[in-house]
Design a protein around this nucleic acid. Structure first.
Lengths: 193, 193
DNA sequence: CTTTAACTATACCGATTGGTATACTGGTAT
DNA sequence: ATACCAGTATACCAATCGGTATAGTTAAAG
């Protein structure tokens, strides 16, 4: 693995564990086996490092979401594929996903938040698009696409969160098809089923 | 307002805006109109400051949740009161609530997370309790209390989150009774209603 | 009048922060 | 042979980090 790659990998892991502001450039360089000027040669600044990290890992995430969220006349099926893609993405790289969440919830005026915001905004649009496409199936939405998108992502997020609460080993954070079905059932028909 | 109070207030506001790790003790002291030793006299450490801040503001939050979550033979009513109390708490002190979220999602090995975790664990139990009390109404839960609690809090959280995304002015983050009814409807009976 | 305790300021600590000036390396193109 | 260039290391910068030793200052209690 070349130095650039090594730095990105180390940074992701450290940012995940102790937060963007909690980790110094010095430590990232050391644990990557390089010196600071090398890091600054590639990334220019600490913010630049985060940006390139996000840009790279978001490409995978978006590519998967792109094809999972294609509406094929069946809301439930689309949501299922989306949820499946979502959980797969996360279990492939849990550190990255939890880093995203941390950055999203960090202070609105922090560098971390401002850097991650445009990425997450685009990501969120995939979910909105699903419900917009399903307008025929859902009847008059009265602008509720956003509410649906929010509560669906909310379900996914928090399902994951509680999972990660118990399991210290993130790599085993697999979500089964049956669990997705249950989650979907509740989302579509409520808890009285 | 005395110094201690002033420090707590300033710290909350700064931690909210730029994150626990993103704010130095120096700045908190300065903006509170005191010097660092004064701050350390009262709180002992930066972590101590955060702890006392959480302890104080959590008392209000818990007191409200305590009475809102009392089950009175009616799940929907209980959830309604809980949601109402939740949104009221948040709109009374949005900075505090968003600080909680930020800390919760911050790296598992960060000081901020470790400090806030026990508080949030207790908070979450209020939601679990609701669904446990409603066992008679919901039939065999097959251990799904947690899943319900998670997805309910998830709905609340993300409803709020998207609200706060658009409105820069947090103080106007009021959620109407009608909105709560809609949210509840969806949670209980799904989106096909 | 003095002791005590709560509180606050001056001035400092070593360590770390993000970032850089400068020089050097190895390989490649002319 | 030489000029160039991507990449790397040594050594440094001012500023800030969390935290503290010490010396007041103030007001109430004995």
């Amino acid at each position: 693995m070349d130095n650039r790659e090594m730095i990105l990998k180390t940074a992701k892991s450290l940012f995940y564990a102790r937060g963007y502001d909690g980790v110094g450039v010095q430590e990232i360089a050391e644990k990557s086996g390089v010196t600071k000027p090398t890091l600054y040669y590639y990334f220019g600044s600490k913010k630049g490092l985060l940006e390139q990290l996000l840009t790279r890992d978001f490409q995978l995430l978006e590519a998967e979401m792109e094809q999972a969220t294609v509406y094929q006349g069946d809301l439930r099926g689309t949501l299922y594929r989306t949820a499946r893609a979502f959980f797969d993405s996360v279990s492939r790289d849990p550190e990255f996903y939890l880093l995203l969440m941390a950055l999203f919830f960090s202070g609105r005026k922090s560098e971390g938040f401002r850097t991650v915001y445009p990425f997450l905004e685009r990501y969120y649009q995939f979910f909105v698009k699903i419900f917009e496409s399903a307008a025929g199936e859902l009847g008059n939405m009265r602008g509720r696409q956003n509410q649906f998108a929010v509560s669906f992502t909310g379900c996914l997020q928090f399902y994951l969160l509680v999972r990660s609460r118990d399991t210290e080993d993130l790599s085993s954070m697999q979500v089964s098809n049956e669990e997705i079905e249950e989650l979907l059932q509740q989302f579509l028909y409520g808890i009285y089923t």
